[in-house]
Each structure stands twice: as C-alpha cells, then as structure tokens.
Computed example of a mutant assay.
Amino acid sequence: MQFVDSRSPATQRVLIVRFGALGDMVLLTPMIRRLHERFGVPVDIVSSGGWTRPLLDGQPGVGDIRIIGSRRRPYLLSPDQQRLVRWLRARGPTPTWFAHPHDVGRDLLRRGNVPDEFVCDFTNTIPGEHDADRWVRFADETPVALGNVYPPAQHTRSAHAFLQVTASMRSDLQPWLVRHGLESQSLIAIQAGNKRTMRSWKRRRVTNKKYWPETRWAQVIRAVRKDRPHSAIVLLGVPQEHELNQDIIREAGITNIHNVANDLPVPILVALLERTDSMISVDTGPAHVAAAVGCSVVTLFADADPQRYRPGGRNTFAIALQGKVEGQLNILGIDASRVIAAWRQLPKRARRYGAEQELTAGVG
C-alpha cells in the first residue's frame, strides 16, 4: 500500500521528526514499525546527535535519515538546517509526525514547504502510559490532509522497542571481542555513567541526579563476581566515562573486569548487548538498547518515571529500581543490596560462550 496525493509525487514516504538522546531514539522504534505497517513505505527520519544514524540505519522500515546539529542556532548561521530545508523541498510534502515535546525545530518543516495539514504534532502522555505505547498511539493519528483515507490502526497490545542486530554488526563485533579478550566468555554489562555524570569534573554535585557512588557499584560488581565467577564483567560508556569506570574497577578489586568506554561505537554496543547475558545500568540509553535486543536489565532511576521510561516497554525483561532520600525521589536511596537482589531475579540467557557450565535459565 502506498499513499498517493495529487499535489505531490505518486510514490510517497512518511516522515518522523524526533530530536532525542540514544534512549529516546530506541523507544521510537515501535512508532517507526507502526507507520511502516500503516503506509507500506519507508519511514524517513529527521533527528540530531551522532548516535541516530548508526543506531537506526538499516533497521526495518527505516528510510532516509537526516541529521542536524543545534536546533536553536539561527537558521542563517546553520548549514545543517539549510541543507535539511532544501531536502524537504525537493522531497515534497508527505505525511509527517513531529514527535517532539516542544516546537524547537518545527519551523524547519514550514521552511521546507511541508504544510501544517500534513503534520501531526506531538501528543501529551496519558498518566501511567509508557513512551513506547505513546509513540504507537501517536503513529495511529492521521494528518488532516489525509482525511479518513487511513483510519487509526487498532492498538490492542503493549508496544516494545526492537532493534535488529544486522549481520554486519555481528561480523564487526567478533574482532572487537578478540581485541578485548572477550571472545570465549559469557558477559555481564555495567553502565555506571551517563551524560549528566560527565558534564562536570565533580560527579557528586547536587545537579547530577543520576550519580550512584563508585563504592556501591563496587559492592554490586563483587556480588556479581561471586555469583558468576567465570563471566567477564564489562563496563560500558563513552570516552568521557572511562575515568569513572577505572575508579569503579579500582574500588571493586576483582579480576576479569574490562573497561571498554574508549572503544564502543554504537553498532558494536548493539551487537555486544545482544551477546550479553544481563546488564545493570543507570537510567540511560544503553539500558534501552539492551532491552531492545533481548538482554535483561536492572535499571536505577533517579526522579524520572519508571512507568514511562522502563527500558524497552512495559513487558520487557527489565527491572526498574527507584529510591527516596528524606521523602524525595533520589537515586542515592537505592542501596547495593536491592540492586544485587534485583539482578539475581533476572532471567539469565543460556550459556552459549565459554566452557563453564553455570545456570542456563532462571535465577542466577
């Protein structure tokens, strides 16, 4: 099925505009899938950030991906915005979903000659609704220009994020595993850092709501090592998080623990987490990647709503933890024993790598 409009080329594509962090773009995948199912054509995406293209390029239903830098920069000073507008004009007006919680960047559609009647604007959440479900609900809306040609699809089950791990991702992962001495081992991933943690040299600052102390990470890691003596523990992150990981490793004082924050491109991250048995993470993008490739994960939340942002969706293998300090939501209200207990409840994957024979399912 293809959308046909007399005012534009016969073969149409649909468009999503979403400027989001890594986790936001993972949670957008149910919407991409739903629009692809509704219209039967590739879904083009306008976004920002260096993670979007390597994350979504080649995913089912994804068409062209266009990336811009700062959306707040004046248009005349932004070559990225100008290139996007030229692309939109050449592409012609097509059904468009502006999936962003504010209007920054909305003017680019008008500059690109996409009429308002072709655009569905961001919808607010329903209390208790997960983002994955919200984006599917939003995908079921129809721009005014289409009239009643495409009524909303019947959404009857919970949505969940999904990332397809491509053959090229798996192929690229193999030499990476060899380089880090991980090719024959079962893996457990730790994501301690996030972009807030690394915005300043002072990790313990009050504004760093997602900071969880190195001593507690070390407690968790020692417990994981005791339960899984033959598994490699891998600390993930971006280069700015490398030093944080090193501090945690020194505090933990165990062997067979690996800091890969200096060498973790997004496609490797996706394939690595498919290969990983389980994960413990703060509320940040890699936790959503894990859930989207079927890796069970424990996630430590600060003041964000786990009902809305639980990794992957409402029904994935994810456990969300939240704590309070003096009656207020605070990640420091989560102690290490709760994290360890939650991790032990996760379903463990069958051991496909290495010679050790540990639990193949159930509780670790």
Rank of each mutant, 00 (worst) to 15 (best):
residue 12 Q to K: 07
residue 184 S to K: 14
residue 52 T to D: 11
residue 260 V to N: 00
residue 283 D to F: 03
residue 178 V to K: 13
residue 362 G to M: 08
residue 76 L to G: 09
residue 5 D to L: 15
residue 288 H to Y: 09
residue 90 A to I: 08
residue 339 V to I: 06
residue 286 P to C: 04
residue 288 H to Q: 14
residue 125 T to S: 09
residue 219 Q to A: 12
residue 74 P to T: 01
residue 96 T to R: 04
residue 50 G to E: 04
residue 9 P to G: 00
residue 3 F to K: 09
residue 100 H to Y: 08
residue 343 W to P: 10
residue 134 R to C: 01
residue 250 R to I: 01
residue 229 P to H: 03
residue 350 A to F: 14
residue 312 G to A: 02
residue 348 K to L: 14
residue 68 I to Q: 03
residue 118 F to M: 09
residue 120 C to F: 11
residue 344 R to I: 07
residue 138 F to S: 00
residue 110 R to I: 12
residue 159 A to K: 10
residue 238 V to R: 14
residue 27 L to S: 11
residue 161 A to S: 12
residue 240 Q to M: 12
residue 197 T to G: 13
residue 81 Q to I: 07
residue 36 H to D: 06
residue 315 N to F: 12
residue 141 E to K: 12
residue 14 V to S: 02
residue 287 A to I: 10
residue 158 S to E: 11
residue 256 N to Y: 07
residue 345 Q to H: 10
residue 8 S to L: 03
residue 272 L to P: 06
residue 216 R to K: 07
residue 285 G to V: 15
residue 169 M to A: 07
residue 64 D to Y: 13
residue 219 Q to R: 06
residue 327 G to D: 02
residue 356 E to G: 14
residue 254 I to N: 00
residue 174 Q to S: 10
residue 229 P to N: 01
residue 215 T to D: 09
residue 209 K to G: 14
residue 245 N to Q: 00
residue 258 H to A: 08
residue 104 V to I: 13
residue 363 V to D: 08
residue 99 A to D: 13
residue 199 R to T: 14
residue 48 S to E: 15
residue 180 H to V: 08
residue 46 V to C: 06
residue 155 H to F: 07
residue 297 V to P: 05
residue 347 P to H: 01
residue 55 L to T: 04
residue 255 T to A: 11
residue 123 T to F: 06
residue 21 A to S: 11
residue 320 A to M: 11
residue 271 A to C: 03
residue 268 I to P: 05
residue 310 R to G: 09
residue 266 V to C: 02
residue 309 Y to G: 09
residue 74 P to R: 00
residue 59 Q to F: 08
residue 355 A to N: 12
residue 221 I to F: 01
residue 341 A to R: 10
residue 327 G to V: 11
residue 364 G to W: 08
residue 309 Y to T: 15
residue 315 N to P: 12
residue 89 R to Q: 09
residue 169 M to K: 06
residue 49 G to T: 10
residue 283 D to P: 07
residue 275 R to Y: 15
residue 63 G to E: 00
residue 272 L to I: 07
residue 251 E to I: 03
residue 345 Q to C: 07
residue 298 V to S: 01
residue 240 Q to F: 06
residue 14 V to H: 01
residue 275 R to F: 08
residue 333 G to Y: 03
residue 55 L to N: 04
residue 33 R to C: 13
residue 354 G to R: 04
residue 300 L to E: 05
residue 175 P to M: 02
residue 87 W to V: 06
residue 300 L to Y: 05
residue 142 T to G: 00
residue 208 N to S: 08
residue 345 Q to V: 00
residue 266 V to K: 07
residue 159 A to N: 02
residue 284 T to A: 14
residue 295 C to K: 04
residue 131 D to W: 12
residue 238 V to N: 11
residue 33 R to L: 10
